[in-house]
Amino acid sequence: MEELISNLKVQLVESLNLEDVTPAEIDTEAPLFGDGGLGLDSIDALEIIILLEKHYGLHIGDPKEGKNIFYSVRTLAEYITANQK
């Protein structure tokens, strides 16, 4: 799980062009969207959907699940672990 979390942080920095943030600076538990975290927006959500499909072969079928899956790096990692074949 920890290795997956580290990889996810690197992939997020690269795919979202987070210039002022290093992977090590991303709080695993902090919210990705809105205040108090990385402050990502809806375009970033689309980029993360692409990231999940491209790197992990995962397609989020139910959009309602997105809010919980995309809450933090940890929830993303948990979703990948639970669903990757």
């Binding site: 795919s15 062009n17 375009i43 689309l46 980029e47 692409i50 499909e53 491209k54």
Partner: peptide, 13 residues
Amino acid sequence: ENDEKLLNPTSFI
């Protein structure tokens, strides 16, 4: 590269 799938929204926008 992606066979017309999984296109990044940012570079398109």
